[in-house]
Amino acid sequence: MAAVSIRGLTKEYVQDDRRVIAVSNVDLDIGDGEFVCVVGHSGCGKTTLLNILAGFIEPTTGTITFGDGGGPRQGDIGVVFQEYALFPWRTALGNVEFGLEMRNVPPAERRRRAQAFLELVHLGHAASTFPHQLSGGMRQRVAVARAMAYEPALMLMDEPFGALDAQTRERLQSLTEEIWQKTRKTVFYVTHNLAEAVYLADRIVVMRPNPGRIHEVIAVDLPRPRDALSPAFVALQRHITEMIRDDRGTGDEKH
């Protein structure tokens, strides 16, 4: 059963009296418990697609249907942003509790559940720490815990580790893999890092710009956890790199 069905999705807007098609005629099914990565250079519409799924912006035409037949609803999705989006006035635990508070979970229960999700990202010891006392990688781990704690039907991740240094980024990729193996969440993950996509995804959606559209959807059949130096891994990464090589520098990503 598909967790999310996207049909005929198009987003147009007018900029300087010019009609810009950010996303054109996208059809995509995301399976229940599937990890889908979306790759492509700036301007290919991958972030626009995520923002539409999140309900932050309205599509011009097309439909999004969730597994139970509803449209996109804020509160039933978990979003991890590229920039640091934790609430600085709340502790790590308080941040993770936020979504549970919105669902009126009683305080003792939500503290217990928030703590469990902090432990899932190996930050159980940092519960009472404020975000500004945490490193960039730790903050994004708290953000992942916060987006998961209220058990959303769909996780949206918008280049969540894009601002981190290479080593931290790699550690968080394997942590993401580990968490996903444990929880089997449905994940829609936007990145421009192809190695990251090949490492994490069940399927990779390759998008190309002008207009932003799906070029190809590639199933990744490599056994997990994946070895980024194995010939099959490298071959797939090269294949996608060549596919979108000419798309670079086509302009800024539109949100």
Partner: peptide, 14 residues
Amino acid sequence: NPVWVRAAESMGCR
């Protein structure tokens, strides 16, 4: 920071 509002809204806060 507008991302605080977005994050809160995505968790059903309004």
